[in-house]
Design a protein around this nucleic acid. Structure first.
Lengths: 264, 264
DNA sequence: CAATCTGCGAACATAAACGAACATTTAGAG
DNA sequence: CTCTAAATGTTCGTTTATGTTCGCAGATTG
C-alpha cells in the first residue's frame, strides 16, 4: 500500500490539521499523541508541536500522552486552586491595569475571568464605587468596607456568575462611571471586538458608552480568535491591556486609532 | 452507558484515568484501591499515586484502602470570614427546615446568616428556583447547576452581602414563589416579629406576601429580643423553626394561631 | 505477647513521552 | 529557475509515568 502513496499525496496543511485535531478532541474528549500520529501519518514531534501550539492558544489542554478538551472546567471548585497557565498572565495583566486606576474613582466591571482578576487586584485600592453584573466580582470587592458595590439584578448564570438580560442592561444604563473594565472573547485582524453571547455584548456596550474611559483586558489567546457577535472595534476602547505583542495586521489596525496598548 | 468489561489492550493515559476515577467516585461515592487496580489493570502503587495527587488537588478524599468524595467544595472554602455566633444551632435548624422543602420548588431567601445556613443545607436538593437579595446565598447556590438563581439588583451592603431598597422591593414583587425563607432579629412576647432595618423589613414583607408558605428561622437568642421595626406577627408565618421552647407567653400566643412550630 | 496480614510509601529501574537543536523537505515569491 | 521561510523529519539527552522491591505501621489472630 505504501507504494501507492505517491499517487495520493494527502498532504494535509497545518492549519487544516489543527482544525481536525480540535474537532477530534471535541468529539472524543481525548486523543493520544500516538492516535494522531497514525491518523495524520506524521511524526510524533509534529503532533507535539501542534498540540503545544493549540494549548498555548487555549483551544485544547495538553496532557502527557495526548490532549483533552480545553478548560471547559465548569466543574467543581470555583476558580480557587487551578493555575490554568493563562491565569498567571491574567493576574499579571490585571496588576498592571489597576495601576492606571486612581483611588476614589468609579468603575463598571463586566463579566469574565479576566475582570475577576482585576477585581482581586483592586483590593488594595481605596474608596472605589463599582457597578457590576458579575456575582464573583461583587463577592470579591465586598471584603473592602470602603468600597461601594452595586450589583445588577436578574438571573445568575451558573457557569460564571454573570447576570445578563434586558433588565440588566437598563439597570447598568442608570449609571455613568469613570472607567469600564471589560474582557473580550476574541479580536479579529480587522480590530473587531468579538464575543459569543448577544445579551452579554449588549450589557458591555452600555458600560462602554456610559464610561469616560474604557479599559479592555485580552490575553494573547484572544488574538485572531473568532466569535459570532460583534461588540465593537478597538477604536472604541481607550486602552487595551495584553500580555503579548498582537499579530502585525491587528497591531497596524490599532496604530491607526487613538487606542493605547499596554504590554505586561 | 457502555459496559465496563472492556479488555483494553491500549494503555489509558494518566489524565484520562484521573478523570475516570473522579467520575467513578462521584457515582459510587467510594472506590477501593483494589477495585481501581482491577479496573485499570495497573499496579496498586500507580493507583495510590493517582489518589494521592487527586486528593492533593482537593478533588477527592483519600482513605485507607481507597478514596471517597471530596468534602463538598463550598463548605471549607470561603466561609472563614463569617460570624460563628450560634452556628451549630443555625445549621441544625436549617437541616430540619430543608426537610420541609421538596425538590423542584421555588423559594424566596431573605437576608441573614440563618438563611445562609439554609442555603447551604439546600445544596443537596434538586432543581430549585431561588429568588434572593442576599449575595452570599446566591454564591452558595450557584454551585448547583440545576438551580435557577435570581438575584435582586442594587447596592450591596458590605456588612452582610444584603441588597435592599426601593428597587429591590419592586424587583422581588415581580415573583410569586412556593416558599419564603426569612430570618428575624427578634420576637416579643406578643408574637410581633421585629427587625432593625426599615428597608430590610419592607423587602421581607413583600417576600412573605408573595409566597404560598412562609418559613421563619429563629434561634433561642431571638425570643424576647426587642427591635424597632415591626415586620409582622407570628400569625403571618406558616412555620417557625427554632432550637428551643419559646417562653410561655410567646408559646401561648403562637398556640392561638395556625402557625406551626418545629423544635430542632 | 508474637506472628501474620494488609495497605502504604520510599527508593530504584525501565520504558515511553517529551523538548531542543539540527537537518531536510516543501511552498511560495522573485 | 533560484532563494527563502515555514513546516516537517531526525537525533539525542531529559523528564515523566509506571512497575518492582522492600521496609514500616496498624490491625487481626494465635
Amino acid at each position: 500500500m505504501n507504494t501507492e502513496n505517491v499517487t495520493t499525496p494527502i498532504t494535509i496543511p497545518q492549519s487544516q490539521r489543527h482544525e481536525m485535531i480540535i474537532n477530534l478532541i471535541k468529539k472524543e474528549g481525548f486523543v493520544t499523541t500516538e492516535a494522531l500520529v497514525q491518523h495524520f501519518k506524521v511524526t510524533p514531534q509534529t503532533i507535539r508541536r501542534d498540540l503545544n501550539e493549540l494549548d498555548h492558544q487555549g483551544k485544547i489542554t495538553r496532557h502527557h500522552g495526548g490532549a483533552g478538551q480545553a478548560n471547559s472546567s465548569i466543574e467543581n471548585t470555583h476558580y480557587s486552586e487551578r493555575q490554568h497557565h493563562l491565569n498567571a498572565e491574567k493576574n499579571r495583566i490585571a496588576a498592571e491595569l489597576v495601576r492606571h486606576i486612581p483611588n476614589n474613582s468609579s468603575l463598571f466591571i463586566d463579566i469574565g475571568t479576566s475582570t475577576e482578576a482585576v477585581a482581586r487586584a483592586l483590593l488594595n485600592h481605596r474608596n472605589l464605587k463599582v457597578v457590576t453584573n458579575n456575582l464573583h466580582v461583587a463577592a470579591i470587592l465586598l471584603s473592602r468596607e470602603d468600597f461601594t458595590v452595586i450589583i445588577a439584578g436578574g438571573e445568575v448564570r451558573n457557569r460564571d456568575g454573570g447576570i445578563i438580560g434586558e433588565a440588566t442592561r437598563d439597570f447598568i444604563g442608570q449609571f455613568c462611571m469613570d472607567f469600564a473594565i471589560t474582557g473580550i472573547s476574541g479580536i479579529d485582524m480587522d480590530g473587531n471586538l468579538l464575543d459569543f453571547d448577544y445579551h452579554e455584548v449588549r450589557v458591555a456596550q452600555v458600560m462602554m458608552s456610559n464610561a469616560r474611559r474604557t479599559f479592555t483586558i485580552a490575553d494573547h489567546s484572544k488574538f485572531g480568535r473568532n466569535a459570532m457577535i460583534r461588540l465593537g472595534h478597538v477604536a472604541d476602547i481607550d486602552t487595551l491591556f495584553t500580555d503579548a505583542q498582537p499579530p502585525a495586521p491587528l497591531l497596524e489596525q490599532i496604530r491607526r486609532t487613538n487606542t493605547h496598548i499596554v504590554l505586561c
